[in-house]
Amino acid sequence: MATTLTATFATRREAEMTVERLVQEQGIERTDIFIAAAGDENTAGEETAGSDAEAGEPSPESRDDAALNGRVIVSVDVADEARAGEIRSAFAEFDAADVATD
């Protein structure tokens, strides 16, 4: 039976790392994974991380313009319970909160 698992992340980096783990190591199709802001505004999460925190070379200045407007939601459509366990593990690895099954 198909189901959807969702979780929220404090940073865009955590959400993106979760997606990469699911695609590259668990073989989940990208078309089955969705990322969205938890609220009405665009968001990079609740705190800066990754490329939102530091500029790349040759500009070493820190950035302070990240859209910090709430958490980032990742949802994954899955067809079987074994895959659901893999997804929950990836969510936990990257500090997901509010993990739910629809």
Rank of each mutant, 00 (worst) to 15 (best):
A53L: 15
R30Q: 05
R12W: 11
A55P: 00
A66E: 03
E93P: 08
V74H: 03
L5E: 07
M17F: 09
T11K: 02
D64G: 15
A96V: 09
A15Y: 04
A67W: 06
E61A: 11
T6G: 13
R13G: 00
D102G: 13
I33V: 15
R71C: 01
G56D: 08
E29K: 12
A66K: 02
E93T: 15
E57L: 06
T4Q: 14
A97N: 04
A67E: 13
Q24A: 12
D32F: 05
F34H: 04
V78T: 05
D65Q: 09
T11N: 04
E20A: 10
M17H: 13
D80K: 09
S62A: 14
D80S: 05
E16M: 10
E46P: 04
N42H: 05
A67V: 03
E61P: 00
A84C: 12
R83T: 15
S51P: 15
D98Q: 11
D65P: 10
Q26G: 05
M1K: 04
F91W: 13
T101L: 09
R88A: 04
A66G: 07
V76I: 14
A67Y: 11
G85R: 00
E20L: 04
A66S: 08
V78L: 02
E61L: 01
A7V: 10
G27S: 14
S89K: 09
P60G: 11
R83E: 15
S75A: 15
R63T: 09
Q26W: 07
A84R: 08
A55M: 01
E47I: 14
A97M: 01
P60I: 08
A15L: 09
P60L: 12
T6F: 10
D40E: 10
E47S: 14
T43P: 06
N42D: 07
A79T: 01
L5I: 11
T3D: 11
A92Q: 10
A49R: 01
E25A: 12
R13E: 10
S62T: 13
A10I: 00
E47P: 00
T11E: 01
A44C: 06
I73V: 15
T101A: 14
F34Q: 06
A36Q: 02
S75E: 13
G56H: 06
E86H: 13
E57W: 15
S62I: 10
A49L: 01
V23E: 08
G39F: 04
L68I: 07
F94V: 03
A37Q: 05
A97R: 05
A15T: 03
T11P: 00
E16P: 01
V72K: 01
A67Q: 12
N69Q: 08
P60H: 13
G39N: 00
E54S: 14
F91Y: 12
G45W: 03
D80R: 03
V76T: 02
D77N: 10
A100S: 14
D98P: 01
V74S: 10
S62K: 12
F91K: 01
I73G: 08
D80E: 14
G45V: 02
G70I: 05
A84W: 05
D32E: 09
V74E: 11
D98A: 13
T43W: 11
V23C: 04
